[in-house]
Nucleic acid binder design. Structure first.
Lengths: 114, 114
DNA sequence: ACTATATTCAACCTAACGGTTGACTTTATG
DNA sequence: CATAAAGTCAACCGTTAGGTTGAATATAGT
């Protein structure tokens, strides 16, 4: 993922986080710090390949980073991208609030004109 | 969606929000307040049925509510479910912080034992 | 050099997703 | 009453997602 629009980042980030295995991986990485792919896979009842693919998905949207040393890949969580989602949430809320403010304002003016 | 586990709620909510059309619908509903399905659909370059399905998805995970009056359905945003996601974010962050704290603590003790 | 380990790549399968169209139900309206 | 309007339901279709297995690649250890 290289310099995409905010909408695409939101889409990819939310989609990544919408899978329970990937959320679990993220949690584990936050708890344990950097982990190897095989170690991560050992916790789950699915193939190493499946986990490898999940990690690639998380990596594509920059929710994790990878540092390759020799044959082992060290995977680490990166929570920065969560900010993008949080910002969207707060924008949504302020849009909501703004409407309510205008609404009450309108009702007060309405009272005066009665 | 009736009394599901938090994990399922997270999955469904994040998946719902990961679609650009549904995010747009949510935004519009926050701006405009309650809207009819047809009105919402008029903004998008896709069939009424597609929008109807998107609305159903948002409704299933309670990001919107529906009030049916006669033949018209009034759709309204409901941002409460966003809290569930925000809480997961903050949990993730504190798990991360906790590990860092333990890590620095360990390093300080390590210095003493040198 | 041989073998084991760490990981990805590629092909495949099934289920789910996002969209379409056409028919149907219910409610308003001339 | 006939017809238009508001929506949903159902069936279909191409694409994507999440999983599998088997092979390939690259690095480490003996």
């Amino acid at each position: 993922m290289v310099e995409y629009s905010n909408d695409i980042i939101l889409t990819e980030t939310l989609k990544s986080m919408s899978d329970v295995t990937r959320r679990s991986l993220l949690t584990r990485l936050c708890q344990e710090g950097p982990c190897r792919v095989t170690d991560l896979a050992s916790y789950y009842d699915m193939s190493l390949n499946a986990i490898s693919k999940h990690i690639k998905v998380l990596e594509r949207c920059e929710l994790i980073t990878r540092k390759t040393i020799g044959r082992t890949h060290w995977i680490e969580a990166d929570l920065a991208r969560i900010r993008v989602v949080e910002i969207w949430f707060s924008e949504l809320k302020s849009i909501w609030e703004l409407r309510l403010e205008k609404l009450t304002e309108l009702m007060e003016n309405g009272d005066k004109n009665d």
